[in-house]
Design a protein around this nucleic acid. Structure first.
Length: 354
DNA sequence: CAACCGTGGTG
DNA sequence: TCACCAAGGTT
C-alpha cells in the first residue's frame, strides 16, 4: 500500500492539474465555483449521472439540456407522463434508465420532499442508482467524501498500480484504493479530476503519458505496458438473430405498438415484427396482402446483432390492429421510437411512389 | 454472479 | 469492416 506522504503528493498533483486544465461541462461545478460558495443542484447532477451511464458526453449533453428545459425540477419530472419521458429518452439507449429515472423522480418527489438524500445508503436504495452513481452524487452534488469508481477510474488505477486481477473481480480492490486516494478536503473536485484524467489523458487506446500529472509514479508507465490494463476476460462472440418487421401503412400513417414494460426496449414503441431468432423463420404476416420487400436493416445490440427483413403493405379497410396506434407519417418524432425502429421506419416507401 | 440491457463513434 | 468502448444497474 502506498505511503501517506505519497498519497498526499498524488492528490496534490492531480488537483493542480485539474485546477489548471480540467474540463468545463454543463452540469459540473468548477473549482472556482465551489470557492465562490456556489452549490450544485442535486437534481441536475443526478440527471447527468444517469444519462452518462455507458454513454459518451457528446451523446448525452443535448438530452441533459432538453430534460432540464422540459422539467426544471425533480417535481416537474415526477409529474410528467411516463410516455413523455420515454419519448425524450429515445435514442439514448438502455431504456431501463429512463423507466428508473421516472420512478426515482416520483420517489424523491413524493417520499423525500423533493430532496435527494446526501448519504450513501439512501441514495443506493433509489431506482437506477448503483454504487458508482451514489458515490458520484455524493461527491459532485454534496461535496462529500466518496469512492467514485467508474470505467475511467478503473483504467487509471489498474494502470497506475499494474493490478493483475481481471475485471470485474478487481472492483473491490480498486474501490478501496480510490477511497484512500480521494481528497477529504475537496471530494467533489477530486472525483471529477480523476475521471477527467481517465477521459482525457489516460485514454483506452492512446494515453498521453507526457501530459499526465501521475506519470512520475505510474507503474504501468514505468514498465511501458499500461495498455495491458485493466485486465479483462475475453468476451463471447455476438450471435445474430433474424426476424421480419411488418411495416403497415394506412393513408399516411404507420402502425406502431408499445413493447412490454420490461426487457429489451421495454416500454418503447415498435414496428410489429415476428419473433427474433434463427434465420429462415419468417413468421406470419398480420394480414394477407401483397407484402413488398423493403430490404433488411441491421442493428447491433449489446449481446446480439439483429437483422430485420422489412415488409411493407397498405392495410385495407377491412383490417384493424388488435393493439397499438396509427402514427402520423410526419410526426414519428412524437413517439418513443428507439434507433433500431427508426431504421425500420426509414425503409418506408416514399409518399411520392405510393 | 453472469447475463441482460442501446447507441454511436473510432482506430 | 470490425472490435472495442463510453461517467453502470438490475436480476
Amino acid at each position: 500500500m502506498a505511503a501517506p506522504t505519497k498519497i498526499t503528493a498524488l492528490r496534490q498533483a492531480l488537483l493542480d492539474w485539474y485546477d489548471r486544465e480540467g474540463r468545463t461541462l454543463p452540469w459540473r461545478l468548477r473549482p472556482e465555483d465551489r470557492r465562490a460558495g456556489r452549490v450544485a443542484d442535486p437534481y441536475a447532477v443526478w440527471l447527468s449521472e444517469i444519462m452518462l451511464q455507458q454513454t459518451t458526453v457528446p451523446h448525452a449533453t443535448p438530452y441533459w439540456f432538453r430534460f432540464l428545459e422540459l422539467w426544471p425540477t425533480v417535481g416537474d419530472l415526477a409529474a410528467a407522463p411516463r410516455e413523455d419521458v420515454m419519448r425524450e429518452w429515445a435514442g439514448l439507449g438502455y431504456y431501463a434508465r429512463a423507466r428508473n429515472l421516472h420512478a426515482c423522480a416520483i420517489e424523491v418527489s413524493q417520499q423525500l420532499n423533493g430532496r435527494f438524500p446526501a448519504e450513501l445508503q439512501p441514495l443506493r436504495a433509489l431506482p437506477g442508482i448503483g454504487e458508482y452513481t451514489a458515490n458520484a452524487i455524493l461527491a459532485a452534488a454534496f461535496d462529500k467524501p466518496a469512492s467514485v469508481v467508474d470505467g475511467n477510474v478503473e483504467r487509471v488505477l489498474t494502470r497506475f498500480y499494474r493490478i493483475e486481477t481481471a475485471m470485474p473481480k478487481a472492483k473491490p480492490e480498486i474501490r478501496k484504493l480510490a477511497g484512500e486516494l480521494a481528497d477529504p478536503d475537496r471530494p467533489g473536485d477530486y472525483a471529477q479530476a480523476i475521471m477527467d484524467l481517465g477521459a482525457t489523458i489516460c485514454t483506452p487506446r492512446s494515453p498521453d503519458c507526457e501530459a499526465c500529472p501521475w506519470a512520475f509514479a505510474c507503474q504501468g508507465r514505468a514498465r511501458g505496458d499500461m495498455l495491458n490494463y485493466p485486465k479483462k476476460l475475453k468476451k463471447i462472440a455476438r450471435p445474430i438473430r433474424h426476424g421480419t418487421a411488418w411495416l403497415v401503412r394506412r393513408q399516411g400513417r404507420v402502425w406502431l405498438r408499445q413493447r412490454a414494460d420490461t426487457g429489451l426496449l421495454g416500454g418503447m414503441m415498435e414496428v410489429p415484427s415476428s419473433e427474433w431468432g434463427e434465420a429462415g423463420v419468417a413468421g406470419d404476416p398480420p394480414f394477407e396482402a401483397a407484402w413488398e420487400d423493403r430490404g433488411e436493416i441491421r442493428h447491433v445490440f449489446t449481446h446480439f446483432e439483429l437483422r430485420l427483413s422489412v415488409r411493407e403493405a397498405e392495410a385495407g379497410p377491412g383490417w384493424e390492429p388488435r393493439e397499438g396506434i396509427w402514427a402520423e407519417d410526419n410526426a414519428l418524432q412524437d413517439h418513443a421510437l428507439p434507433s433500431v425502429m427508426h431504421k425500420v421506419v426509414s425503409r418506408r416507401k416514399p409518399a411520392s411512389e405510393r
